[in-house]
Design a protein around this nucleic acid. Structure first.
Lengths: 214, 214
DNA sequence: GGGAAACGGAGCGAACCTATCCACTTCTAG
DNA sequence: CTAGAAGTGGATAGGTTCGCTCCGTTTCCC
């Protein structure tokens, strides 16, 4: 695969510096970074960044494979929890926790446009596992039956919004919002009115997540 | 107050056109409109817009007094409903409904920065009434006791986020999200775990709403 | 009819981004 | 140690988007 000859030692060092700087930068300010930003952060000339990563998308993709891995690990970890509701909550909370500490990841999951293709790949890797978590919670009767997998991205959107706005005030306020929302998702003894509208279709949710934002 | 001499007829006509166009534009695309945008929409030269409204903020303020009135009317209306929980829900839903049809209003309420001062004034006019609605719901035992008035702006934030992202897919998806969230806010028979963290203070919420976003 | 008031929109400067280019530095094979 | 290949940095060209001004022209009103 990697047919090209190895980089010179200094070049390789710079490559790593760029990757590291870009990584930190994306976590701090989000997906919206220019070659110039990266160069400044890496203490390297713009030219160097362009030479090594002519396509910014490729660089970003590289950064995110690893991030998605972290989420996948999270699902696996959640699957180990016996109680299905606890497991589901653990996943949702963990996922949001990751996002809280990584604006780039948040942008990716919430889909602020642009990165569609990346988000789709992530969805394909994570989706099935989440579906399983949801099914378990349904089977155990702990998740209200009229809530579907498709409702979970909505949690992300919602709690992310709180995270975004409240980050600098109380970085943990989103936990409160999440707890309240999850209580709404939880099955309860007393009867409840049916939810308005139909459960969103997977296609719709996908569109929401990759919103072109016009 | 209005000591200046009246405008020439054509000038007055243009002033109205500008105001009308700006109003429609704000409803459609939000607070983030330039003098140029307004001029184009009003079919008027940029210069004219600048001459009449040198300070964009003043123009926008003018547009929003009327919008806030609509919300105040909504609270009053909700107060008439006998069942405290229904009343509260009616207000929250109505408020979000207004926002769904008016992006500018949404921006104002969600506080995307900038318009701080405007949002504060709005809060001062609406806040007390909402507090009353919440107190009624508490007294009747229909609102979970550990949810405070301060938690309601969070609903706005959360559901607005869904609205924003899903508008073009299913303009009513937010209703589903809202229903789920409100179910989380509602008091239930079975015991529940206490919410994590403290109820946010009013000061905190104010800060959240007027987030400088940096 | 004439002078004051208002108009329109070309266009200026600032900010910011992408991308290139080439004189200079650093590496490494021999 | 050295020559020349590989790599570097950052000034700069060129594009876009804004906010705003300025002034030749039009419109109003006495």
């Amino acid at each position: 695969m990697d047919g090209s000859k190895p980089l010179r030692r200094d070049a390789e060092r710079n490559r790593r510096r760029i990757l590291a700087a870009a990584n930190a930068l994306v976590a701090k300010v989000g997906l919206d970074i220019s070659h110039n930003d990266i160069a400044r952060a890496a203490e390297v000339g713009v030219g160097t960044v362009y030479r090594r990563f002519p396509d910014r998308q490729e660089l970003i993709d590289e950064l995110f494979d690893e991030r998605v891995d972290r989420i996948v690990a999270l699902v696996d970890q959640a699957m180990e929890i016996d109680d299905p509701w606890q497991a589901l909550c653990a996943f949702v909370a963990g996922n949001l926790e990751l996002q809280a500490s990584d604006k780039g990841l948040k942008d990716l999951m919430v889909g602020d446009g642009r990165v569609t293709e990346l988000a789709q790949r992530a969805g394909r890797r994570i989706g099935p596992a989440v579906r399983q978590l949801v099914e378990r919670a349904h089977a155990s009767g702990q998740l209200r039956p009229d809530v579907g997998v498709e409702d979970f991205p909505l949690i992300q959107e919602m709690v992310s919004a709180v995270m975004e706005h409240a980050r600098h005030i109380d970085p943990d306020l989103w936990r409160r919002a999440l707890a309240l929302v999850l209580d709404g998702y939880r099955a309860h003894a007393q009867p409840r009115e049916p939810l308005p509208g139909a459960t969103p279709t997977p296609e719709q949710i996908e569109q929401v997540l990759s919103a072109k934002r016009r």
